[in-house]
Amino acid sequence: MRLVRQIMGLPISLEVPGGEANAAERAFAWLREVDRRFSPFRDDSEVTRFDLHGPQSPEMREIAGLCRTYERLSGGAFRARLPGRAFDPSGIVKGWAAQRAGELLRAAGVSRFCLNAGGDVIAAGRTWSVGIRHPDQPHAVCAVFAVRDLAVATSGSYERGQHIVDGRTGLPARELVSLTVVAADLTTADAVSTAAFALGHEGIAWADAQPGCLVYAVDAARRVHRSAALDDLLVPPGTIAS
């Protein structure tokens, strides 16, 4: 059973076994709650109150802590508060929220599912084929990974333009067009892919050095860089993972 909902301004799809619709809707409800509470575009969100030094929920403190961690690990390339701008943890929130949604599914007894939050994926319970969009051909993929009980997150400039900023310079990150991270959880995969994209070329090796992370990147010259261990997950062209 495949369900799709429009949340956070993007399509979120969830494949679960038949009969798990209630658990799926609870996961979607959580993602709607996150959109309401942590959107930087809402005047009444916790992100806005955080910027105004208002009260913080445990979840808001966790998000802010993750932002500080990846700012430190990336040497400031990842930054949730750019000079002259309001606090914006969007580079952390989507992966964190989807990871929590996956945990809700598991707590409800759903062990086999594939959650796709705008291209950031949790693949659980069996082997799923996860395609990485080609940066120049919207209807093609440049790689397909066969993943099980792993998360896949991609940061790129081909959908939303140059929206990822290098926090060290305040300028858009332009050295890469796509960077994908495979990790055990989507919070890590999403945060590392965003920070690595902001770092540019040096972000490829940086992401590869993060514990448990594998990297597939396409630079501005359309050269492909990948972790050697990804060879075990790559699906040969013309085949589909079972």
Rank of each mutant, 00 (worst) to 15 (best):
Q6C: 10
P11Q: 10
I12S: 02
I12K: 04
V16M: 08
P17I: 11
G18L: 12
A24L: 07
A24P: 08
A24I: 14
R26G: 02
D35W: 02
R36Y: 06
F41Y: 15
E46T: 09
T48D: 05
F50N: 09
F50R: 10
L52H: 13
G54H: 11
S57P: 10
S57L: 04
L66H: 03
L66Y: 04
C67R: 04
R68Y: 09
Y70P: 12
R72N: 08
S74H: 11
A77Q: 07
A77K: 07
F78Q: 08
R79V: 02
R81D: 07
R85C: 11
D88Q: 08
P89W: 00
K94Y: 05
G95C: 06
W96L: 11
R106W: 14
R106S: 13
A108R: 10
S111Q: 12
R112N: 14
F113I: 11
C114Q: 14
N116V: 06
G119H: 12
D120K: 04
A124V: 13
W128C: 01
S129Y: 00
S129I: 02
V130Q: 00
H134G: 04
P135E: 07
D136W: 12
D136C: 12
Q137Y: 14
V141N: 02
A143Q: 03
V147G: 01
V147R: 00
T154V: 04
S155C: 12
G156D: 12
I164S: 08
T169G: 15
L171S: 14
L176W: 08
S178Q: 14
L179D: 03
L179F: 01
A183C: 09
A183H: 03
A184S: 13
D185T: 13
L186G: 13
A189I: 02
V192F: 07
S193Q: 01
A195S: 14
A196I: 06
A196W: 06
A198L: 04
G200A: 09
H201F: 07
E202W: 03
A205N: 11
W206I: 06
W206T: 04
A207D: 01
D208T: 10
D208Y: 00
V215E: 00
Y216L: 08
Y216H: 10
A217V: 09
V224S: 00
L234S: 00
L234D: 00
T239V: 02
I240Q: 08
